[in-house]
Amino acid sequence: MTDQTTKIECQNLSKIFKQRSGKVQIPVLESISLSVVENEFLVIVGPGQCGKTTLLRIIAGLETPTTGKVFLDGKEVTGPGPDRGMVFQKYTLFPWKTVMGNVEMGLKIGGMSKRQRREVASHYINLVGLQGFEKAYPHQLSGGMKQRVGIARAYANNPKVLLLDEPFGQLDAQTRYLMEQETARIWSVEKKTVIFVTNSIEEAVYLADRIVTLEGKLPGRLKSTYVVNLPRPREHIDKEFLEMRHTITKETELLL
């Protein structure tokens, strides 16, 4: 399923937040080393406030690590860039742009002609199942639909790696299941290297090729790694699924 080219390589990352005055220092991440291979679906699981979002933001280039480096295809990451696509927990769509405008934004920034980017954007709007809503503004959409736009926006820019930061954390349970299915479907149609952050073990087992868990308190450290070899599409109530979920839950003591 995956060839073994390394896409993302994190070397010994740590991050310490300083308060304004510099007096209080909060260590958030400590000695994280991690690599992700091409077309792998990696899920990072941890409870709230364990630094998993910070880790993703460092990989995205939106934060600079206090120590350590991130490499993408062997090149060091120094800032945000279009080679990584990000889907945010709070959707973060551009409210003044329509669905079409949001999805084609990355292509517009990349300098693609209007006709061409319309075509590409339409393809991804269809892929996430939003055909017919091209002209709607984000405030007219439901949470699930907003996040579909977020996914389409990230996909349309054709990034090498897709980063999803608790993308379904704000959705209700039903929509969340649906969006997990959709994510698995979209990923099976257009393979990408994915790093997906969540606090739900179930969600992780459903989506991941490989799961890494973070410790439940600051500073976040890597705890364990699980390879999920279940066939896709997966069922939440398969015996193997439940066993896997049970194992991880037992070993993770998710603190809330």
């Binding site: 937040f17 308060q19 304004r20 909060i26 933001r57 939106l62 934060e63």
Partner: peptide, 8 residues
């Protein structure tokens, strides 16, 4: 918590 490490 804001991630910005505030510059002086």
């Amino acid at each position: 918590m804001n991630s910005e490490t505030k510059l002086k």
